[in-house]
Amino acid sequence: MKIAIPSEGKNLESLVNQTFGRTETFIVVDNSDMSYKAIDNTAASAQGGAGIKAAQAIVDSGAEAIITFRCGQNAADVLKTAGIKIYKATAGSINDVVKMYNAGKLDELTDIHAGYHNHGGA
């Protein structure tokens, strides 16, 4: 199964990125053989709606699950509509969290936040 993970770098040793919509890279990894692909997140510099655009890229990648520290409401709406499961990341590398997933140790992410919109005010 393909799993998408926001990443600080372009390989399996990279750390999981703390953000979702504005991560520079997503690693899409197949947990059966650990083959993977790094995709650039073009939403990282979007003025607004970054979460939606990032979620769209994940849907298009064919991933069936994501592992992330956090996820906003709009992005979650896109992912849920696509039937993509959202799991809560634990600290570590892409390798580490996929092992955690394979061992059944990751919980589904339930605290979807309202988004960090309009920071900076008027």
Binding site: A43, A46, Q47, G48, G49, A50, I52, K53, A55, Q56, V59, N74, D77, V78, T81, A82, G83
Partner: peptide
Amino acid sequence: CKYNALALVNNRLLVFKEL
């Protein structure tokens, strides 16, 4: 859409009206 107010999932268009 430059405001990312639209998404396409399972061939269905989603509209994010606030955006």
